[in-house]
Amino acid sequence: MPLLKIQNLSRSFDDKKAINNISFALRKGEILAILGESGSGKTTLLHLIGALQEPDEGELLLEGNRITPPSRKLIAGHPDIKLVRQDYGLFPNISIRENIAYELRYYEENYRNKRVDKLLKLSGLDKVQTHLPREVSGGEQQRAVIAKAIAEQPKLLLLDEPFSHLDAVNKRRLKTEILRLIKAEEVSCIFVTHDVSDAYGMADRLAIMRKGKILQLDNPQTVYQHPANRYVAEITGEVNIVNEDWVAKAGIKHQFVRPEQIRLALLSPLKATVLSVKFLGSYYEISLKCLEQELKMFSFEALVVGAEIGIEIKN
């Protein structure tokens, strides 16, 4: 039995479908990333799963039991599902430790202290536990919020744009630390993002949303290498969109060619002219013209502008 099962879920605002007939299942311990542009319905979907908004149609099941919609409860939400919003939600005038402990205020003191100690250690916050939220970094604040959210050991954690406030260095560090924390606590997780780099290396599966629909849902590698359509191809990374005539002449199978699929091949009959070379740190971005089509390729070596080279396309 999946942990979460969503069947034919829909939600409209002012006659506009924010969520349009979505169905999928989430396994226990799985991390699912939902990727889409602003307005695609990602946050609305989280609110429906968390029983914070009312669906117009469809059903949500947690471990086989129907999730009660907010209209049938005094207080919206579900005790086994925790949502972490974009605004951190920490109490500003109490310490990091006290923020986490607040979630366990109705538990026996000895258990509460042991649980907080464990979460502080797992999240790497033990050295700043006495600090106020404003005295720690954005990444530490985000870890504290997540530790607070899983303090009562929910079955499902929902994260709304968890990395949006962070710079690249803190984002990479936080991804590693959140992944370790989630796996250690054996909690399932769904997080939404507009940046595909947030999903790579963290998500077990990746769903692409657009206008309230899921266009493709699979493991990240499959979604990247075999995108269902142009939108999926473009939102998941750099891609060359070639026409059908070029596909036939180049002898490839589809119109979506990733820059890293283009390789130098001295003896190849497929020739290209180097238009420009850009240094991007660990690699070069090479612009080519081949069969009247401009292409982008990646190379670890700089090429000479104006040179004619042989290339091949790795399917």
Score class of each variant (00 low, 15 high):
residue 203 A to M: 03
residue 51 A to R: 03
residue 118 K to N: 14
residue 49 I to W: 01
residue 229 N to V: 07
residue 58 G to T: 06
residue 132 L to G: 08
residue 116 V to M: 12
residue 293 Q to E: 14
residue 195 D to F: 07
residue 40 S to T: 10
residue 297 M to H: 05
residue 191 F to N: 05
residue 148 K to L: 07
residue 206 L to M: 09
residue 157 L to I: 04
residue 180 R to N: 13
residue 301 E to I: 15
residue 123 S to N: 02
residue 200 Y to N: 03
residue 56 D to V: 00
residue 47 H to T: 11
residue 42 K to I: 07
residue 43 T to E: 02
residue 198 D to F: 07
residue 223 V to R: 00
residue 66 R to P: 12
residue 125 L to H: 03
residue 303 L to V: 11
residue 235 I to S: 06
residue 49 I to N: 00
residue 41 G to A: 03
residue 197 S to G: 12
residue 302 A to M: 11
residue 248 A to N: 14
residue 267 L to M: 15
residue 235 I to K: 06
residue 284 Y to Q: 04
residue 5 K to I: 05
residue 145 V to L: 10
residue 52 L to R: 09
residue 79 P to I: 02
residue 56 D to K: 04
residue 1 M to E: 09
residue 141 Q to F: 02
residue 54 E to G: 10
residue 158 L to N: 03
residue 41 G to Q: 02
residue 119 L to G: 07
residue 232 V to F: 04
residue 84 V to T: 06
residue 262 I to K: 00
residue 253 K to W: 05
residue 180 R to G: 05
residue 181 L to T: 00
residue 56 D to N: 12
residue 221 Q to H: 13
residue 175 K to Y: 05
residue 223 V to F: 08
residue 86 Q to S: 08
residue 240 N to M: 05
residue 204 D to V: 04
residue 217 L to S: 02
residue 8 N to G: 11
residue 23 S to F: 00
residue 290 C to Y: 05
residue 111 Y to L: 13
residue 114 K to D: 10
residue 75 I to L: 14
residue 1 M to G: 13
residue 153 Q to V: 14
residue 159 L to I: 07
residue 179 L to E: 11
residue 182 I to Y: 09
residue 17 K to C: 08
residue 241 I to C: 05
residue 79 P to S: 01
residue 171 K to P: 15
residue 20 N to D: 15
residue 135 E to L: 11
residue 198 D to K: 03
residue 123 S to M: 05
residue 305 V to L: 08
residue 209 M to R: 06
residue 282 S to K: 14
residue 201 G to C: 06
residue 98 E to Q: 06
residue 194 H to K: 07
residue 228 A to P: 12
residue 296 K to G: 15
residue 167 D to H: 06
residue 59 E to L: 14
residue 173 R to Y: 12
residue 284 Y to C: 06
residue 225 Q to T: 14
residue 164 S to P: 11
residue 128 V to L: 02
residue 71 S to G: 13
residue 76 A to E: 09
residue 141 Q to A: 00
residue 109 E to Q: 15
residue 89 G to D: 05
residue 130 T to W: 12
residue 20 N to S: 12
residue 293 Q to V: 14
residue 179 L to T: 12
residue 166 L to V: 07
residue 305 V to N: 13
residue 107 Y to L: 15
residue 6 I to W: 04
residue 142 Q to Y: 01
residue 34 I to P: 01
residue 62 L to F: 09
residue 260 E to W: 15
residue 154 P to I: 07
residue 119 L to V: 04
residue 274 V to T: 07
residue 232 V to M: 09
residue 288 L to G: 06
residue 158 L to F: 00
residue 279 F to A: 14
residue 200 Y to Q: 04
residue 46 L to Q: 09
residue 206 L to R: 12
residue 262 I to L: 07
residue 199 A to S: 09
residue 285 E to D: 11
residue 190 I to G: 09
residue 178 I to D: 03
residue 285 E to W: 02
residue 139 G to W: 04
residue 4 L to M: 06
residue 153 Q to D: 15
residue 297 M to V: 12
residue 270 L to K: 13
residue 120 L to R: 11
residue 195 D to T: 13
residue 182 I to W: 10
residue 29 G to W: 10
residue 282 S to M: 13
residue 36 G to I: 08
residue 64 G to M: 01
